[in-house]
């Protein structure tokens, strides 16, 4: 994994005047959706900061704003008011192209339903973010195989997603998220579709990545099994931070 860590040096992406202490910082962040003539406040005055190497989880019941916050931190969405600075970039001021660039170079995503591209092989799925970055063919091959080895799927490189189990599919998604060695990985309910054993494997894999590469992981989850791995648990309730506490992060 050291190979993965060393190969992909990132250019500074930070906007002048932003706080370099934090990887992510939100200030008075709110997200309000118009619903007909009324509005729904999904996030209300969120003030959070994450540093490099965090292994944090956003927990809370359905509708508490976990996924919305994760989407904003991943520059897939923007706040209605307030600010979210991600790796020195203000998400609310990014153009679509800039947001795409931020996601492509610095953020890895892991989804509940894996979101693998069905017509591509495992290898091609993992290779995809590197293709968008115009990596050379030999560079891509090495990084992809390293990432697949890391998640223990090097021998399934040329299988199609439909030929994989749920656990294997999620490991491919992890490989795809980490192949570009991002500073930040956002995982939305990564174990929701997995059984206990696969969930444990997945969380072990991500904990190792966090440990070895110092990649920052932020989860949105209400899975007890995930929570046992977290070093920081942020509880959201009705769009507000109800609790922000350190945890043991010991896994099983």
């Amino acid at each position: 994994m050291e190979k993965l860590a060393g190969q992909n040096k990132k250019k500074s992406f930070r906007e002048p005047g932003t706080d370099s202490t934090y990887l992510i910082k939100t200030e008075n962040l709110s997200k309000i959706y118009p619903i007909g003539l009324t509005t729904l406040t999904a996030l209300d005055n969120i003030n959070l900061a994450f540093v490099k190497g965090d292994f944090a989880g956003l927990v809370g019941p359905s509708g508490s704003g976990k996924t919305t916050l994760l989407n904003i931190l991943g520059s897939l969405d923007s706040p209605t008011t307030g600010s979210a600075v991600v790796m020195g970039k203000k998400v609310e001021t990014l153009t679509h192209r800039e947001a795409a660039g931020l996601r492509n170079h610095h953020i890895g995503f892991i989804f509940q339903t894996f979101n693998l591209l069905p017509v591509y092989s495992v290898y091609e799925n993992v290779e995809f973010p590197l293709l968008l970055q115009n990596f050379s063919s030999s560079g891509r091959k090495k990084l992809v195989m390293d990432a697949l080895e890391w998640v223990g799927l090097a021998d399934r490189a040329f299988s199609k997603p439909l030929q994989l189990s749920g656990g294997q599919s999620q490991r491919v998604a992890i490989a795809r998220a980490i192949v570009k060695n991002p500073e930040l990985v956002l995982a939305d309910e990564p174990t929701a579709n997995l059984d206990a054993e696969n969930s444990r494997n997945i969380m072990d894999t991500m904990a190792r990545l966090n440990e070895n590469l110092k990649t920052t992981f932020i989860f949105a989850t209400h899975d007890e099994k995930v929570m046992r791995y977290l070093k920081r648990i942020i509880t959201l309730n009705d769009g507000r931070v109800a609790k922000d506490e350190r945890a043991a992060g010991e896994g099983t």
Binding site: A100, N104, F109, P129, L132
Partner: peptide
């Protein structure tokens, strides 16, 4: 997914 991966 493609957008999340960074495609414009």
């Amino acid at each position: 997914t493609l957008m999340a991966l960074g495609m414009t």
